[in-house]
C-alpha cells in the first residue's frame, strides 16, 4: 500500500465532511406568518407542496373534501385531522430547515399510505449537500487509489 493512497482517501473523506457539514450562510428574512389552506381528498393534498423560510410562523388550515383525513408532518412530528366541513388548524414555527413530507394520518382508503405532500423550509440543504456528496462519490470511484 502506497502512502499516497492514504492521502487520497483522507482527501476525499475531508472533502466529504466539508460538503456534508460546512455551515452555509442562509439569508434570513424577517419571520412571516404564512397561512396555508390545505385541502385533503382521497388521496391528495392541495396544495401538495408548501414553501416557507426558516423561522416563519406557519398555519395550516386543513379541510377535507370527502372523508375524514389527517395530516402528520415528518420531522416536526405534529398531527391534526379534519372532517369535511370542519376546518382544523395547525400552527407552528418552522424552526427546522429542510424538506419534510406530510402524510395523511387517518386511514382513508386503499392509497392512504401514499397520500403525501411536502413542506420545504428554507433552501433544501440536504439535497444540495447530497448532490455534492454524489459527485464526490463518483470522483472517488474513478480515482485509482484502489490499485
Amino acid at each position: 500500500m502506497r502512502p499516497s493512497k492514504y492521502i487520497f482517501i483522507s482527501g476525499f473523506l475531508l472533502a466529504g465532511l466539508l460538503v456534508a457539514f460546512t455551515p452555509l450562510p442562509v439569508p434570513r428574512n424577517e419571520p412571516m406568518h404564512h397561512i396555508f389552506h390545505v385541502d385533503s381528498r382521497s388521496f391528495a393534498f392541495t396544495p401538495a407542496e408548501i414553501k416557507v423560510d426558516r423561522g416563519d410562523l406557519v398555519t395550516i388550515e386543513l379541510t377535507s373534501s370527502d372523508v375524514v383525513h389527517g395530516l402528520y408532518l415528518d420531522g416536526y412530528e405534529l398531527e391534526i385531522s379534519t372532517d369535511p366541513g370542519q376546518t382544523n388548524q395547525l400552527t407552528f414555527t418552522a424552526d427546522r430547515a429542510g424538506s419534510f413530507r406530510f402524510r395523511c394520518s387517518v386511514t382513508c382508503g386503499d392509497l392512504h399510505p401514499f397520500m403525501i405532500g411536502k413542506l420545504q423550509v428554507g433552501p433544501n440543504l440536504l439535497l444540495w449537500r447530497g448532490a455534492g456528496l454524489a459527485i464526490l462519490a463518483a470522483l472517488a470511484g474513478v480515482w485509482k487509489f484502489h490499485q
Binding site: S64, D66, V67, V68, D83, P84, G85
Partner: peptide, 8 residues
C-alpha cells in the same frame, strides 16, 4: 356521525 363522502 363522521363524514364519509357526499352521501354520508
Amino acid at each position: 356521525t363522521r363524514w364519509c363522502g357526499a352521501n354520508h
